[in-house]
Simulated scan of single mutants.
Amino acid sequence: MKLLIVEDEAELAASLVSYLEGEQYRCEVASTYAAAEEKMLLYDYDCILLDLTLPGGDGLELLRQLQQRQKADGVIITSARDALDDRIAGLHLGADDYLPKPFHLSELSARIAALVRRRHFNGSNLVQAGPLAVDVLLRTVRVNGEPLALTRSECDLLLLLLANQNRVVMKSTIAEHLSGDIAEHFDSYEPVYTHIKNLKRKLAEAGLGECILTVYGLGYRFELAAA
């Protein structure tokens, strides 16, 4: 799962990255209004942690832009501005949650997990597709009750495909999801092909057969064969 941390306090941003990467999230950071605007409008994130007071502009304006572009990124406002008007304005502009500073990192992590569950998996920690079961919070995978060992990237890829079951996920989307904004500098999609190949092999060996289908020229689709 990919997060954007919009935070101008360098020490706090570093603390957030350290903690959340330990929780198996992929983190990017923007410390100014301009940097946040560029990332938020160019890339997709599972969750954006948005401070409102930024060098160069107001975080509420970034929310307005997301709303105008009809982007579906989840947003949790993390701000020392705890005025009621700011909370109401942020929620009306599409924010999913508002966590005033200072906050406990464990609570922030729990709120991120809850947001991801609501947006992608109908509020459930357990995502199931036939005999396949993935615990979103613990990042554990089982097939027919037996544990399946996946790398972090493979688990992230599987969750992305499961969140879009029976729909094509573009190669560019997968590259960005796994690698963040550095994906645009790749000369090829070789990292995507490698992760797809390894994940397909592990799922097939676990008894799921050919459940990741290649849509030539576009990307991949997760689809379990009818029983």
Rank of each mutant, 00 (worst) to 15 (best):
M1N: 07
K2C: 07
L3T: 04
L3Q: 06
E7W: 01
D8M: 04
L12M: 13
A13K: 00
A14I: 11
A14K: 08
S15W: 04
L16G: 05
V17L: 12
V17R: 13
Q24A: 12
Q24E: 13
C27N: 04
E28I: 01
V29H: 03
A30L: 03
S31P: 00
Y33V: 11
A34P: 05
A35E: 11
A36Y: 02
K39G: 05
Y45V: 04
L49V: 04
L52C: 04
L52K: 04
L52V: 14
T53N: 06
L54H: 01
E61Y: 12
Q67P: 01
Q68D: 14
R69G: 11
K71A: 12
V75F: 00
V75H: 02
R81K: 15
R81M: 14
A83P: 00
A83K: 11
D85Q: 09
A89Y: 06
L91W: 08
G94R: 09
G94H: 07
A95N: 05
Y98P: 00
P102K: 10
P102L: 12
E107H: 06
R111W: 03
I112R: 09
V116P: 00
R117Q: 08
N122Y: 11
G123R: 00
V127A: 03
L137S: 15
L138C: 11
V141C: 12
R142M: 10
V143W: 02
G145W: 02
L148R: 03
L150Q: 09
L150D: 07
R152T: 15
S153P: 02
E154D: 15
L157D: 01
L160C: 03
L162K: 00
Q165H: 08
N166H: 12
N166R: 10
R167I: 13
V168N: 03
V169Q: 00
V169L: 01
I174F: 04
S179R: 14
D181L: 06
D181H: 12
D181G: 07
I182S: 12
E184A: 15
S188C: 03
E190K: 11
Y193C: 10
T194V: 04
N198G: 12
L203N: 00
A204G: 10
A204E: 11
E205I: 05
L208F: 07
G209M: 04
E210M: 10
L213K: 05
L213G: 06
T214A: 15
V215H: 06
G217H: 06
G219N: 03
L224C: 07
A227E: 15
